[in-house]
Design a protein around this nucleic acid. Structure first.
Length: 318
RNA sequence: GGAGGGGUUCCCGAGUGGCCAAAGGGAGCAGACUGUAAAUCUGCCGUCGAAGACUUCGGAGGUUCGAAUCCUCCCCCCUCCA
């Protein structure tokens, strides 16, 4: 469960967010030359050990220059959830503050950032066997079966979901099955009103054309640096498509290549396209958050420094 | 040179006289998102627009009340025979 705030005032936390390949890591490392900070990575795939190239993890030098947390936490066949992230991230952020350093949350996983800055509702996590069972039911009894079940159990939630959104439907069903309480009721009570930290959210803006260009080049590099081999080693460890880790963009395409279902050129094209689409979804998520201050990391660097300085000052005055 | 097959909206691809601005898929754009989130899902998608109008199915003609669909000629692509 939640670690409670040991201090009477809210601890500060800087958040650096933005789409993939926007240069978040680079900026954080650069900022470390000016501030005594430690990075908490908010990236749902850098959590996994052995997935270095495909997730563009910070390099050894970067990690040597600045402490990075919540990278390499579990093996690719293990599970890790937004709630795990919230719990561990909160603990780490408090710890960094207690050592009089500045925690900087850096990443592109919108839900993880939200979980850490605004909390998650207090419902239990699901069991994969139960989820598997429900998924099978949908296949055996036909599309819409789960949705109809949800309509009976949690009508307000069902009204907000589409019948094909099986993952969210399953979540609603499993919460009710375990607690006897509607997920929609949990949501209403929670409402993201918790704020353990006082945050300064900086969004990295990159013109779309140039972002897409950076993505294309990054993907070419990943393949050149051995993304295929990295995927193979995940397979050697017993990883399969059923694990969320290998469902990450890049790995699934390499898997197709290893299964001879794709040519290398298709692999590169597909990863580039999927990454662009992912970046778009990230931007949609982040755009909605009106507390984000959007900046260009090079052009506005001085302003970024000033914003953080001011943010720290306000903390000390409290 | 001969015999077939084909050219459809950004791409792939269905459509053989009206119900076709044209199925479906992809891409693109926009959006949703509370314990799978690099996941999952939704909307729009020729142009202008309220209705409706206008321009599209290789090109040019023709038949017809009416053509992406039928006929003629032309251009291009593919396969086979020489």
């Amino acid at each position: 469960m939640m670690t409670s705030n040991p201090n009477s005032v809210q601890d500060p936390m800087v958040v650096i967010l933005g789409p993939t390949a926007s240069g978040k890591t680079g900026l954080a490392v650069k900022l470390a030359r000016y501030f005594d900070l430690e990075v908490i990575s908010a990236d749902s795939r850098q959590i996994y050990r052995g997935m270095d190239i495909g997730t563009a993890k910070p390099t050894a030098e970067e990690r040597h220059a600045v402490a990075h947390h919540l990278i390499d936490m579990v093996d690719p066949h293990e599970k890790f959830s937004a709630a795990d992230f919230e719990e561990q991230g909160t603990r780490i952020a408090y710890d960094i503050n207690s050592r009089n350093k500045l925690p900087v949350l850096v990443g592109g996983t919108g839900l993880y950032i939200k979980a850490l800055t605004e909390g998650l509702l207090a419902a239990p996590s699901g069991h994969s066997e139960y989820r598997e069972k429900l998924k099978n039911l949908e296949v055996e009894s036909g599309e819409g079966t789960l949705y109809q079940a949800l309509c009976k159990v949690d009508p307000p939630l069902a009204a907000r979901l589409f019948p094909k959104d099986v993952i969210r439907i399953i979540r609603g069903l499993e919460v009710f099955a375990q607690t006897g309480k509607r997920l929609s009721a949990f949501q209403e009570e929670h409402g993201f009103r918790k704020s353990e930290f006082r945050t300064l959210k900086l969004g990295i803006h990159v013109e779309r054309e140039s972002l897409y260009d950076r993505i294309d080049r990054r993907v070419e590099n990943m393949v050149r640096e051995g993304l295929i081999e990295e995927t193979q080693s995940l397979l050697d460890q017993g990883c399969s498509l059923s694990h969320p880790a290998i469902q990450a963009i890049g790995y699934r395409e390499c898997l197709s290549y290893l299964n001879e279902k794709m040519l290398l050129s298709e692999v590169i094209d597909t990863i580039q396209r999927e990454t662009r689409r992912y970046a778009k979804r990230q931007m949609t998520w982040f755009r909605k958050d009106k507390s984000v201050i959007w900046l260009e990391s090079l052009k506005d660097f001085d302003r970024i420094l000033a914003l953080i300085e001011n943010f720290i000052l306000m903390t000390e005055m409290k």
